[in-house]
Design a protein around this nucleic acid. Sequence first.
DNA 1: TGAGGTCGATAACGCTGTTATCGATCGACC
DNA 2: GGTCGATCGATAACAGCGTTATCGACCTCA
Lengths: 205, 205
Amino acid sequence: MSTVSTEPAVSPAELRARLIEQAARILGEEGPSALSARRLATAAGTSTMAVYTHFGSMAGVVDEVATEGFRRLIDHVDAVGTSDDPLADLRRMAGGYRDNALENRHLFGVMFGAISLGGFHGRGADPEVSLAAFDQIVSGIERAMAAGVLREGDARAVAAQFWSALHGYVMLELAGMDRVVDDSERTVLWPMLAHLLEALAPAPR
Amino acid sequence: MSTVSTEPAVSPAELRARLIEQAARILGEEGPSALSARRLATAAGTSTMAVYTHFGSMAGVVDEVATEGFRRLIDHVDAVGTSDDPLADLRRMAGGYRDNALENRHLFGVMFGAISLGGFHGRGADPEVSLAAFDQIVSGIERAMAAGVLREGDARAVAAQFWSALHGYVMLELAGMDRVVDDSERTVLWPMLAHLLEALAPAPR
DNA sequence: TGAGGTCGATAACGCTGTTATCGATCGACC
DNA sequence: GGTCGATCGATAACAGCGTTATCGACCTCA
């Protein structure tokens, strides 16, 4: 028998990807407190040093995971597709946004919670990726304007309003604040978005 | 000279209050990563054990600080007072909410960020206090309904919509997302709230 | 075949949250 | 008035944390 290792001998790039993947998994399954350098390294089958050669610090890991979270959000929202009813598309985008947040609550927290306790919080996700997520909403608004169901105007500003309202509802829901109002999905989220879009509708002539 | 100590000999209740006060101060001045049991104990002039006898764990401290944050928010919003223009009052409440968040961003993060990294997050603030904060908004909405500038309806549901939109804008601003839209206070926050209230206005007869 | 450089495994630093132990101090009750 | 009981906090220890220095192994290119 030779001394040749029978192990796969992963490349640095593979290892890096595996670290991000495992970090996202641990975060999602066990929450923020379970994500440590040693734990992450073991899960990825390597040593803690690999974490530091690839990401510099745990904050670097978090930034990378946050970016990954935005990529998944984009995919999730993209999956709802488009129809010939741009307002319905916006509603379905909102639903996708919310579903993604509820299914990946810890990941969502990292994406937006520069605010973190006891924690490493780095500089946040790659702006290019988080901007792409915002651009999805902008596109949705633009389609609605082009179709004449929303008043023409600054699509980015309108998209930011839509996003703020949606995001706020989701954040409050994640924080458990939805308990202050019963059945809030039916009496808060959808009416709120409907009101916003209604006020942005073209003036009746 | 007797052996009587010249120290103040603080009571347990005083010490507890001092711990909460110092925890809020450290968090506000130096951020989440500076808040440790030893650091907190030293700042309050005691030992780490005091933290555990009074709060059980650091998570307990965080819950208490979050509750304190809601109390300060309530005071801040209360300070705007009321006028005979309920809609203007709502706008000023929103301004107070936002100002409070920007001035105490770490505290704000703890209040709503059950989401925390590497962290202790406990069960959140005392529901009674956070509910009181929500009730401020409900009262504002009720006054507007009573004055006939908002359509009569479920004030709690409407308040939740108002809160969601406001909260979402503030959270995105704290996360640095306001950079995706220029001058967002003027083109996002106020127009968004105006649109929401406009859609909730009584139907013209 | 050799040289250079990248990458990760090992071990150590000071710090963290948390707990066991124990002494002091204060109030109640006989 | 004196003693008993309980509450509270100071000390010291534990395992685990992020991070770093060291160093050996490997892969690439000449």
